[in-house]
């Protein structure tokens, strides 16, 4: 699952953008059924990532340590 873990490093905004693209592609209906299913699965995965990231989001406040 190393690959999966790496993929989860994706930024929220990036994941959301990818998800939007996938939805567009599936809606256009030009892909083969296999490709559609593949995309669908990726979409579901991205949905989960986005939701998890949203749930996990919490405000942290840190202070810049560099000398200003």
């Amino acid at each position: 699952m190393q690959n999966g873990e790496q993929k989860e490093e994706i930024k929220f905004e990036e994941a959301l953008k990818k998800l939007e693209e996938i939805v567009d592609v599936i809606e256009r209906g030009e892909l083969s059924l296999e490709e559609t299913i593949e995309k669908f699965e990726e979409g579901i995965r991205l949905c989960k990532i986005c939701k998890r990231k949203l749930e996990e989001a919490e405000m942290k406040i840190e202070e810049l340590k560099d000398e200003i």
Binding site: L16, V23, I26, G29, F40, G43, C47, L54
Partner: peptide
């Protein structure tokens, strides 16, 4: 927005199937 995307995706998938 994400829910909406998921709904759209599922609907499109269902249509495709």
């Amino acid at each position: 927005g994400i829910e909406e995307l998921a709904r759209r995706m599922e609907a499109a998938m269902r249509r495709r199937i």
